[in-house]
Design a protein around this nucleic acid. Sequence first.
RNA 1: GGCCCCAUCGUCUAGCCCGGUCUAGGACACCAGAUUCUCAUUCUGGCGACAGGGGUUCGAAUCCCCUUGGGGCUGCCA
Length: 427
Amino acid sequence: MIKVRFAPSPTGVLHLGSARTALVNWLFARHTGGKFLLRIEDTDRVRSDEKYLREILRDLRWMGLNWDGEPMYQSRRFDVYREKAEKILAAGKAYTEGDAIIFKVEKGRAIEVDDIIHGKITFNTDDIKDQVMIKSDGSPAYNFCCVVDDAELDITHIIRGDDHIPNTPKQILFCEALGHEVPKFAHMPLMMGADGAKLSKRHGAVSVDEYMREGFLPEALANYLMLLGWSPGEDREIISLGEAVEIFELEKMSDVQARFDIQKLRWMNGEYIMAKKVEELLPLIKKQLAADGVKADIAGDEMLLKLIGLYQVRIKTLSEFFGLTDCFFKDDYPVDEKGKRKYLESKKNRECLREFAGRLEGRDDFSHERIEEACRAMAEEKGLKAGEIIHPTRMAISGKMKGAGLFEMMEVLGKEKTLERMREAVG
RNA sequence: GGCCCCAUCGUCUAGCCCGGUCUAGGACACCAGAUUCUCAUUCUGGCGACAGGGGUUCGAAUCCCCUUGGGGCUGCCA
């Protein structure tokens, strides 16, 4: 059975690059009916933190990447690593230096790796230094415990970033010394920042939780990430995790580095937001509003649902929602000064607003259809273009020059607030 | 420096493995137009690439070599 693993180190939050590695491992495992295991590489006791581990696991779950069984913790296996290292030492393939146990690398050997993504990669052991297995402080060195654990977990395929290519021959050497079968390797090209350099904080948000908080949908993030280095063909781009599981092929992964493009991620997120039903968006928007510090409960679900319907085609991330709809939640929303000058200062516009408000006054039915009728009728009678009524009104009730359809906005705002703001605007 | 990975529009990619169907297809972004009460959506159209040089071949984006460029590793971090 195929077994892969994702091996995060809990010394920081889940980086986008790591999330992509996890995603590819997960897709491969689910596609092949294999196992996706987790190993926590917490050998660095100083830098490892339980807090990071919890966040990493939370972020993986959020992305929809479920793992099989319980995670393995390297910090609980120090005795195993020591025992294995001592076995190699006893076999004369290693030596000690102080308290450290160091593996002797046999010189003049070629090591070939048949990488699933890159093809044949050849190394010469002349370029490889002797390798520490157990450090002076008794903790295991990365390459060594990695091999011990991969064997213990019976890992068949190691899928990881290109940055691990130089580790591969070292690990193969350990495999041989331990008498383990060498797993298959697939090194995926690294994800770079927009400028082609290593994706780091100076490029902006680089951790999964930052995107989560900014209102990106996990489906969109996963979809975007899976397309970096892999293509399903037929010019398809919107692919759910479920569909990807069906058609994913590790062999088709590209061996070329890709740059992370926030624009395309935003576009894709917008696609997912538009495709969702308003009912599905409701809890997400509520959570986002709460995070934005908005008391969304002053608006009922019914109103929120209508607002979401009006604005879901206008936002690329959930966090943009409040900026467009603040006028529905409070009276002290920001006002576009330029718009105010343009639409609310001339006598004509003020007259127009007063008249429109007056015509709406006596109406019990404040549905957008009725409001629109009233508006069109007034325009015709006064010889105005509808826009001459619409724009000042939108400005008056929202403080904005842009927004959803005016009549829908008025309906959602309600008769009382709408008329109040229209009157306030004309003084 | 040494070792290793890589090179199609600005970006993500299809095509490359199995040379001809490629005047190189799609998407994001950008620009223009249509629709519309604004914005957004939607629809049309436009811009835009095989890094360079040698081979091999009747024929190369596709195969080989070199150059150039980018990236990774070079820790008793992981």
